[in-house]
Nucleic acid binder design. Structure first.
Lengths: 353, 353
DNA sequence: AGGTACTGTGGGAGCGCTCCCACAGGTGAT
DNA sequence: ATCACCTGTGGGAGCGCTCCCACAGTACCT
């Protein structure tokens, strides 16, 4: 309330304004604003006086006023275009969120968590974006046909996507080396003396899943191995998908002696089917997963897995997004300087291979 | 979608304002505001006209202006007073976040995710709160000596805590029935014919962990069983803590034939030590965990566990918080009507018991 | 001397809303 | 006729900032 709460102006609870700080420091409103925002055009003496006043009064800028006047929000949204369930089922997201949080902790930016799993939520999200409630958007796990990136582009809202949708992704993107990670997994299995290496893919409308297939294929081909279609079964990153794919693989190629799964969760499903079929891990069949999640460590036997530096990816996304926001230009310079970051993966060898 | 389609109106990128909608509808600014905010004091005809204008122009209220004028933010913060790492290590948080997201999806409220794991982050958090950047706060996983609740109280910011800090918690709280959950676990073990039932506790400065000990004790006592101090070992919810506690229990009471652990992760640690000691699960020792997390399902053998309705707890927290925000009063009526929600638990029986 | 170009500073003019007062026009009781 | 008291409406007065223009002061040229 405007005039209501003037009684409590004493210590805590009283929220000083710029004007009050200015009065206290004996300067003008503009000068305080300059100090607060780190403008260099302030003399050292004045700056010191203002900073003292700020400290004395415990001044904290009002975000809403700032956002209104400056037409920016100091907030970014992490948009998850899936139902909440999926988001948390895969540790991938948590790790990413962690990196994002870390990257943000040095800034004034606030993180908004937004789910766009249902149509209603999409609707609302569209409104938020239209209202320019955030300065930028982080997109994770976007499927190939999602209209969201298009929309962001039209609204000219800076955005960074994790996992490009295709080789020609137009948005700034951050990715891990899916291709190289898959290669290293397959090469590891070959080095272990495995002859017949199968692959359970991820959802193939996810570009990263395709790249893993490429890495798997190329690793085999470069080693002069057979590249049998029957050794590749399509999964969808889920446990159930892993089970189904594994069952198909065993039916078609009962002689397989290694499986490279596109996620740890998928590997868990595969493991179960292998067990039920009487195959021992790693004695009869080597198993390698992807993500190096907690599940990999807790599996019996512990699962060899390809670690993605997901946390660093989160950090990288923030860095790129902040850059985009900082030099937000009249959209003229777009497309020319598409930014991209690809971070390396690492094979973590455990007992399953 | 909402705003994007109507692109070519007036200045490019210029979002329509209340005033423009008013002009279009042939009414005053105040009337439009009333319609937008669902005030009943508008005639049906006027309301219809305004709504038409809003639709035509693709009007979306400016959040910052609204927040500034109304002195509220339409945002709430989920504050995690721990390092990000801990937050994501336990599925507990993810589930809760899911419930919170679900509870929020029917409202205009935005969710801010805030970590307060380091001192610097605490500092910043304090600033946010002081700046009244959010209308309310959700606190999860607060330890007994945390100053945060106190601060929120002083700032008169509505807050709901998950897991009260003590029996006399002053904040509105949501909890699951820790006592009942523990009882049902122990009663289940007794029904299975187990005679010597040990308990590995959680961090005892967490009230819920204490309540589980109470439930364990009372279940035994009510059944006329011995209540041996040597059967209770203090843990801290972690795997490593579970290992250490289990080792101690085996040393003191090698005759134990059942263990009730205060978390699944703890149970995982206990399981490892039991294995190494040559005890078979469940043949020699029954094992029951708490949380019914993914780990429980993936353990070998699958772990019997007490399920908390964490997602519903998240929902409940939101409901309570929104209520508090809605009837935010001059703090006079505080303490009198302490709200509390306690949700039931459920024992999920698997092969480990 | 005046001219030019800085640096540092004060403060007016909004940003787009909500709040609230004023007031028109209707109703019913006096 | 007066009064009281509704309902619905318009619009002024801010909310606390940022932006930007004006301008004093200083410095270094012609």
């Amino acid at each position: 309330m405007a005039g209501a709460g003037h009684g409590a102006r004493g210590r805590s609870g009283g929220r000083p304004t710029l004007e009050e700080v200015a009065a206290r420091a004996g300067v003008g409103r503009g000068t305080v604003s300059r100090v607060i925002n780190g403008s260099p055009r302030v003399s050292d003496a004045t700056r010191a006086a203002v900073e003292a006043a700020v400290a004395e009064l415990g001044y904290v800028p009002n975000t809403a006023a700032r956002a209104l006047a400056a037409n920016r929000t100091n907030a970014i949204a992490l948009v998850v275009p899936e139902p909440e369930t999926r988001f948390f089922a895969e540790p991938y997201f948590s790790d990413m969120l962690r990196g994002v949080g870390a990257g943000l902790s040095d800034t004034e930016m606030q993180l908004l968590l937004t789910f766009a799993g249902s149509d209603r939520k999409r609707q609302r999200l569209a409104q938020y974006l239209a209202a320019h409630r955030v300065d930028g958007v982080l997109l994770v796990s976007v499927h190939a046909d999602d209209p969201l990136p298009e929309m962001l582009d039209q609204l000219e809202i800076p955005a960074v996507i994790s996992g490009p949708r295709s080789a020609g992704e137009t948005l700034t993107s951050v990715d891990s080396d899916n291709y190289g990670g898959a290669r290293s997994a397959v090469e590891h299995l070959m080095a272990r003396g495995r002859r017949t290496i199968a692959h359970i893919t991820g959802h193939l409308d996810v570009y990263g899943a395709q790249r893993r297939v490429d890495g798997y294929r190329d690793a085999l081909r470069d080693a002069g191995r057979e590249d049998d279609e029957l050794l590749v079964a399509e999964g969808d990153f889920t446990e159930e998908g892993g089970r189904r794919a594994m069952a198909r693989l065993l039916a078609h190629r009962p002689d397989l002696d290694a499986v490279f799964a596109a996620s740890d969760v998928t590997a868990a499903g595969a493991r179960q089917v292998l067990r039920e079929a009487g195959r021992r891990i790693p004695d009869d069949v080597s198993l390698v997963g992807y993500d190096d999640s907690a599940i990999a460590r807790h599996m019996d036997p512990p699962l060899t897995s390809v670690r993605q530096p997901i946390e660093e990816m989160g950090r990288a996304m923030i860095d790129l997004l902040l850059t985009e926001i900082a030099d937000r230009r009249p959209a003229a310079s777009r497309g020319l300087e598409r930014r991209q970051a690809v971070l390396p993966t690492e094979l973590v060898v455990r007992a399953s291979s």
